[in-house]
Design a protein around this nucleic acid. Structure first.
Lengths: 236, 236
DNA sequence: GGATCACATTGATTCAGATCAACGCAAAAC
DNA sequence: GTTTTGCGTTGATCTGAATCAATGTGATCC
């Protein structure tokens, strides 16, 4: 058997953790594991909602675009995250792999039915959706009201929160280092800025010794206090 | 008895519609009806999540602010909408009445418990949350990537969708009239603009005979095609 | 080794929208 | 009926970020 929930690396973190052994076997029959290459789309904006999935490995971006090509990243997905629009007929956004990825796919109708029969699973899904709603609303404040420097500072702090490598933290200091999982254009699309503005703001933070940039992908936060101040009110 | 779900005006539209007569009686015991004056807050950003509620009458805004006073409206609530953060301990935003309102309030812990015991109710709540997430993500594209004229046009169309008075539509034409439930500053806070920019964009649309403004609160859409074009791509 | 390609940075200039400031206007208060 | 008060509009100016345009840099491929 190719699929096997018992061996799944995300079984304890994904919504599946609400299920017992028998139920895992049942949902296993509905799923298939699919590999997606970096850059490939899993779901297209405007399409009927035919599939939903769990991210097993890799990373995805969730985007919405205007006809002239302007694009906004409206979400990021990592292993154990849930993808797709259950209980609805349209996908309102595109889901694209940022790295080579693996997902565990269900037909939406199968999944909807299974969820309705398993309230604990539905509860997990509700909790995730509520958490995601909180996150998305936080970014509305960022997109609607924050300046470029506030946006970049907020972004770096959120990324450090999600990605900070504990082994790198220095006792007594607040040095944190992490690798951004995407390039400048993606950062710009997350923050509602242009690539040039993002670059300039990063350089500025570097000049003020608030961050260090060993290379384009890696970021060290040297002074998280000041970064926090910039993120919240723009006070340099 | 002051509270009576049987007589409730929103019982068929609110999440309570998932409940049968006996269950309505049970949830009735957990609720109390509360009146809120325009401008009064029901929930404060950062507070512990102690209550949740259904909007029975009136309207609310959901806001998040920066320390220097910049404010972003991140949601609007109308009768039958659900308010508050179930299954979580913090409210991430402030909820304020825009008009004199009535809500049906539950203690969050009572509500959480009741929901877990009634999967159909939880399902309704999930559906609402998913729909709201779609809406909020749509506004991320607006806030992150749309120009002022695109934002105002999108806003007017969405409002017309929600509020258009059917009795005013002219056969064969596309005249639609509605009353904005809020002033220019609120519109600015929804769109991530200033009051002056909103005003100028409205005047511009009026000059181009795309809308008419009988007074500050009322809007007539004269040419919804052109308005749609502006909303989607900015083509005047 | 260079050549190419994909990103990222940096600089010069422009422009959309913010800010600052005055004025208009209708409803409420006197 | 005049004054006040709370919006909303309009105009002049400023500015932060976009745009336009090189230039830099580091991987991959001959």
């Amino acid at each position: 058997m190719i699929n096997n929930c018992e061996q799944c690396v995300v079984k304890n973190k994904a919504i599946c953790s609400a299920l017992d052994a028998d139920e895992l076997i049942a949902i296993n029959r509905l799923s298939r594991k699919v590999s997606i290459k970096a850059g490939q789309a899993l779901i297209w904006e405007g399409d009927d909602s035919l599939i939903v999935a769990n991210v097993v490995e890799g990373a995805f971006k969730l985007t919405s675009s205007l006809e002239d090509g302007r694009e906004q990243i409206i979400g990021l997905l990592y292993p154990s995250d849930f993808v797709g629009r259950p209980f609805g007929d349209k996908n309102e956004y595109t889901v694209t792999a940022l790295a080579d990825s693996k997902v565990c796919v269900f037909s939406r109708s199968d999944f909807d039915k299974f969820v309705r029969e398993h309230p604990d699973l539905e509860h997990k899904l509700l909790q995730r959706t509520l958490t995601e709603l909180d996150r998305v609303r936080r970014s509305m404040l960022l997109l609607g009201r924050k300046t470029a420097s506030e946006r970049v500072a907020s972004f770096l702090l959120e990324m450090s929160d999600r990605l900070a490598d504990a082994s790198c933290s220095v006792v007594g200091g607040n040095l944190e280092e992490f690798a951004l999982p995407f390039g400048r254009q993606q950062v710009a699309d997350i923050l509602g800025l242009t690539i040039e503005t993002v670059s300039r703001q990063m350089t500025q933070l570097k000049k003020n010794d608030i961050i260090a940039l060993p290379d384009h992908r890696n970021v060290q936060i040297l002074d998280s206090m000041r970064l926090q101040n910039i993120a919240d009110a723009g006070a340099a």
